[in-house]
Amino acid sequence: MIKLYDYLLSGNCFKIRLILSFLNLNYEKIHIEFYPSEEHKSENFLQINPLGQLPVISDDGFILRDAQAILVYLASKYDKGGTWYPVKNTDKIGMISQWLAFGDSLTGSASAARLHDTLFYHHFNIEKCRAMAHSQFRILDEHLFFQEELGNDWICDGVTPTIADIACFPYIALSEEGGISRISYPAIRRWLDRFKRIERFVVMPGVFPAGPGP
């Protein structure tokens, strides 16, 4: 049985809830209170993850931390269709890894801005976080525009979404909670709609569902 050390408002935990739902896997949630008690910095939790970060999974006792690492692990092990992380397609694996790093980098920008605005992380330099997020969004918007031109709906080439889309989705979908408007990123806004229409998509507070697609 997979156990997920989870916090409802965390975008990184949301990535794992998304892949678990997309792959239709049963799992148990263990609630770790990030705010206000900072349970992720508690003695008990540091024994599970010395970095004091969420999410962490335990798969029959195999413990793994870091949202991107968990995405790779779950998709490689449990995706019967082999589309979310096609291990044998080296070019695509390279591409996915590149965008996994991009998704991870949003934790320091869009996610940090959101923590500043919603969970009282006042020591973050909010202007810097927002500016960094905007420059990252610009890159992704341009990339997605030209992906559409090539007939690709997703961040990486091909007809199906990959874990790169999952890694990038949460903090972009939640960016307005950190005062980062998406009005200048129309290709991103369209991609968000497409992502929300993936079968078995789930929501979290602040992420709204899309209506039925075309």
Partner: peptide, 9 residues
């Protein structure tokens, strides 16, 4: 920009 069933801002 106005793809089907989308709302553009």
């Amino acid at each position: 920009d106005l793809v089907k069933r989308h709302v553009f801002q």
